[in-house]
Design a protein around this nucleic acid. Structure first.
Lengths: 119, 119
DNA sequence: ATAATAGTAAACCATATGGTTTACTATATC
DNA sequence: GATATAGTAAACCATATGGTTTACTATTAT
C-alpha cells in the first residue's frame, strides 16, 4: 500500500517531518503569523513572548531548518522573512484528505476510496 | 498583533499542537494513508512496519489523542477508522497562508499584508 | 576607547518521543 | 481446560524538545 519504500525516507517526507513538527508548536505558529505581516528582526520577533531571547532564537532556527523562514544578516541585525513554500507542500499533503472532510459518502467518494492516497 | 492572549492557550490551539505534532511523524502519516482506504484492526495496521506492535500501538494512541482516528473495540479486536475533521482544521490554518504561496505580489496581496493573520 | 545592542553558543535541566522487551489481560479456538 | 491471538501496560533506554542562565562575538553608538 502507499509508498512501498521506507515510511519517511524520501526528501519530500523529510521535509514534511520538519515542517509539521515545526508547526506543532504555538510559539512558532505565532512567529509565522507575525512574519506573514512582513519581515522582522529577531529582537522584534521575540518581544511579544514571555520567553528568553535564546529560546526564541531556537524556535527561529527550527523554522529556518524547516524552510519556513529565511534570514538575511546585515550588520548585527538578523532579518527574518516568511518563506511559505513548505506551507504549500504541507497544504498539498493535507489536500489529499479533503475528500474525507465532508462526510457526504457519495459515489465519488466510493471511487476515491479505491484509489491510493500516497505518502 | 495576532492573538493578544497566550500563544497556544486556546482549545483550538491545543488541537493544532496535537494534530501537527501527530502529522510530524512518517509512520503516523502512513497509518493515516492506510486508514484513508478504510478501517483496519491494529495488527493489520502494524503489519507493513518494521516495528514492534507496542510501538505501532503508541502511534495509534497519539493519532487518537489528536482526534485523527477513532477506535471501536469488539471482542479483542480494536478497529481503527480515520476521523478526518482535525485534518480539516489543520488545512484551514494553513489556508490562511495560501495568499503567500503564489509569489505574485499584486495589490490584493498588499491589502492582505495589512490584515491580521491570527493564531 | 567605552559602552550598549543584536544575537549566537554552550552548558544545563526537565520532560517528551520513539523505540525496545517483558509481562499481563482478555477473547477466541481446539 | 489448554493454547493461541489481539492488544495494552509497564519498565527501560537513547535522543529530541523547549526552556533556562551564563558567556561570548560582533556591530553600533557615545
Amino acid at each position: 500500500m502507499l509508498s512501498s519504500s521506507q515510511p519517511g525516507a524520501s526528501k519530500h517526507g523529510q521535509n514534511l517531518n520538519l515542517v509539521f513538527r515545526a508547526l506543532g508548536d504555538p510559539t512558532r505558529r505565532e512567529l509565522l503569523a507575525r512574519l506573514s505581516k512582513g519581515p522582522a528582526m529577531v529582537t522584534e520577533l521575540a518581544r511579544p513572548f514571555d520567553m528568553s531571547l535564546p529560546a526564541v532564537g531556537k524556535h527561529l532556527r527550527i523554522l529556518e531548518n524547516a524552510g519556513l523562514i529565511r534570514r538575511t544578516v546585515s550588520g548585527r541585525v538578523h532579518q527574518c522573512a516568511l518563506s511559505p513554500l513548505p506551507l504549500k507542500t504541507a497544504g498539498e499533503w493535507l489536500a489529499k484528505y479533503t475528500q474525507f472532510w465532508d462526510e457526504t459518502f457519495n459515489s465519488l467518494n466510493e471511487y476515491i476510496r479505491d484509489d491510493n492516497v500516497r505518502e
